[in-house]
């Protein structure tokens, strides 16, 4: 898999893996993309915090009869109060040998406007830029995600509305893509959190119907500095929807 990466990405991956040997203080309830759901809650990591996250997933795309494996290391830094920056790169293995976009670099900025109160939900905006550093990748893509978190009792709902500008598109692909998702979380006990979500995405190809996906998952706080997440899901709607997806992810605060 690593032979498809350029040198800076390989360094990022190796540095990220190296952080497994250090410590401290994980963010148990802070929902983040890929851990194990796609849902983002409206809160960033704390100011001055550093967080490393690595998620491995397996997908089966029934329409193409293809097995897909993905590993995504990501580093986050709380560079100011209520905001963080993130740097990650998805590394994908496809059974059919298609490595397009493998090793693109994603840079994200996240800003939380407010904390949830009795009368107001919490609001946040996340922007991300995907640089075409990966295999056969074209154009700089831009994403904007609006996030709203609202809770009652120990339950929380999260609304994610996203827009992607698909600059590296091929013929027959949409220039503008929209996503909408609802996520839910609830503590099981002090060490475990249940998470679930339902998303609908516009498919990049114009001829394809919207893609629906769902995930059910569990987050387990292992110790004060790390969290493990596990998720199972699938899709429906267009035939191109993912039939089955399993995710295992690890997060380390330090």
């Amino acid at each position: 898999m690593f032979k498809h990466l350029n040198r800076p990405i390989a360094v990022l991956v190796l540095l990220s893996i190296g952080f497994f040997s250090t410590s401290f203080a994980a963010d148990h309830r802070n929902l983040e993309e890929g851990f194990p759901t796609r849902t983002e809650d409206a809160y960033p990591i704390a100011f001055k915090a550093l967080e490393f996250q690595a998620g491995a997933s397996y997908e089966y795309e029934g329409d193409d009869k293809t097995h897909v494996g993905e590993f995504e290391p990501e580093l986050k830094w709380g560079f100011m109060k209520n905001a963080h920056l993130g740097l990650g790169t998805p590394l994908t293995w496809r059974e059919n040998g298609d490595h397009t976009n493998n090793g693109d670099i994603e840079i994200e900025g996240f800003y939380n406007f407010n904390v949830e109160t009795q009368s107001l939900p919490a609001f946040a905006l996340k922007t991300s830029v995907t640089a075409p550093s990966g295999v056969d990748s074209r154009g700089v893509d831009f994403q904007l995600l609006g996030i709203l978190t609202r809770g009652w009792g120990q339950n929380r709902l999260h609304f994610n509305g996203g827009y992607t500008r698909n600059n590296g598109r091929e013929s027959g692909e949409r220039a503008d893509l929209y996503t909408f998702g609802i996520g839910f979380d609830r503590p099981i006990d002090l060490d475990h959190l249940f998470v679930a979500e339902l998303f609908v995405d516009q498919a990049p190809k114009k001829a394809i119907d919207p893609l629906f996906s769902y995930t059910l998952g569990l987050r387990k706080q292992l110790n004060p500095w790390s969290v493990l997440a596990f998720g199972l899901g699938g899709g429906f709607g267009a035939p191109e929807a993912v039939d089955f997806k399993a995710t295992l992810a690890y997060q380390l605060g330090f």
């Binding site: 401290f24 203080a25 809160y43 990591i45 704390a46 100011f47 001055k48 915090a49 709380g78 109060k81 209520n82 939380n112 406007f113 407010n114 904390v115 109160t117 009795q118 009368s119 107001l120 919490a122 609001f123 605060g253």
Partner: peptide, 15 residues
């Protein structure tokens, strides 16, 4: 919304 009386920032700081 930010002009609302109970609009508040989270302001968490790492240890």
């Amino acid at each position: 919304l930010s002009s609302c009386q109970n609009w508040e920032s989270k302001n968490e700081v790492f240890h």
